[in-house]
């Protein structure tokens, strides 16, 4: 019975959330947000959502923590004290009470007879073997039955990187005192100068990339897929940038290349749909790719769209990092190699 484990994790989760609310040190709060994501990922695993757990761990504890820290390096480390006001607290308690009332008529946790377990989902489970031959049911629902949602999801991350690039694009006209990073790298150790960091990372980064590729292509069988792979590979590249400096990284992986990459990723996904249209099927109907063996056609389609997601997400992660890092530290200071906070 894993009941007590869940209870303990939930208690930790509550404590973490309260700590985030109360901490005035924003760096500490950012780390706590990362821990919050990790704890959530553990809970997701307990609730059988391994794909969600994987993604939450990679995104919440990885990417968003890096983004928070980059932002804090540019803005402020501490939150200012403010007098306490009652109105928000009352509003929140009232809303919470309404929500709790609303749950009273819900099917209980884990009830196998709940409507969601008897209406649509059984078809997905039955269809996995019959129509797809792909063991990971989440992957095939994601890429086929709800492939259009996943296309939308790829576009969401594309939209975010376009937005971030528009807002933080290389435009630094007025570098007044307010624009200097609060944390300057002078005081920080130069990561590049540490032989251990350098050597270890040179060994680790290829392994991370390799793992990312494994996640990309193993997504049919176990947890993982294009999005998780993109985040992991993106993180490896970002790690390289943190250690060897932004401009070194940009020489290896220039922005225009990534911009082309992200566009091609989205187009690969959408184009797979267009191809199925042209071959006489409905949009994103992969069965038409192989008229003799629809299973094989679907497999091919899923491989293509997952590839599109992987490419788009990898490029998006790196481009978002470029925008923050390029803005974050005066270019030459960052190139000293002390960018990682």
């Amino acid at each position: 019975m894993d009941f007590p484990v869940e209870v303990i994790l939930f208690l930790f989760l509550l404590a973490t959330a309260l700590t985030v609310a109360l901490l005035e040190d924003l760096f500490a709060a950012a780390m706590m947000t990362g821990i919050f994501s990790l704890l959530s990922a553990c809970l997701f695993t307990l609730m059988d959502a391994v794909d969600v757990a994987f993604t939450e761990a990679a995104v919440g504890a990885g990417v968003s923590t890096v983004l928070f820290l980059s932002t804090l390096a540019l803005t402020a480390q501490r939150e200012k004290q403010h007098p306490f006001t009652w109105f928000p607290l009352l509003l929140v308690i009232l809303t919470g009470a309404c929500l709790v009332t609303g749950t009273l008529d819900m099917p209980h946790y884990g009830d196998p007879k709940a409507p969601i377990h008897v209406h649509v989902a059984p078809e997905y489970i039955a269809g996995a073997e019959r129509d797809f031959g792909i063991p990971n049911i989440v992957t095939n629902v994601l890429a086929s039955y709800r492939g259009y949602d996943t296309f939308g999801e790829t576009v969401v991350i594309f939209t975010a990187s376009v937005g971030v690039m528009l807002l933080l694009g290389h435009r630094r006209r007025r570098p007044g005192p307010a624009h200097r990073p609060t944390i300057t790298p002078e005081g920080a150790a130069r990561m590049r100068d540490f032989a251990i960091v350098r050597v270890v990372s040179m060994g680790v980064i290829p392994l991370i990339v390799l793992f990312g590729l494994y996640v990309q292509f193993h997504g049919d069988f176990g947890p993982g897929g294009g999005f998780q792979a993109g985040v992991i590979i993106g993180a490896a590249v970002i790690l390289y940038g943190l250690i060897f400096g932004l401009s070194t990284l940009q020489r290896v992986v220039p922005s225009p290349l990534l911009e082309t990459g992200i566009a091609l990723g989205v187009l690969l996904y959408g184009g797979t749909g267009v191809a199925s249209l042209l071959m006489g099927g409905h949009y994103l109907d992969y069965a038409v790719f192989d008229s003799d063996d629809p299973k094989h056609g679907r497999h091919l389609g899923i491989l293509l769209v997952e590839g599109g997601v992987g490419i788009a997400v990898t490029c998006a992660m790196i481009l978002i990092f470029y925008s923050f890092a390029g803005r974050a530290l005066a270019r030459e200071a960052f190139d000293e190699g002390g960018g990682g906070q």
Binding site: F151, V155, F158, V162, E259, T260, I262, A263, L264, V266, L267, G270, G271, G273, V274, L277, H282, Y283
Partner: peptide, 16 residues
Amino acid sequence: VLEVVVPLMAAPLCML
């Protein structure tokens, strides 16, 4: 579907 997919796929093309 074209009503949505045309602008959706035009966006990455436009960026290039």
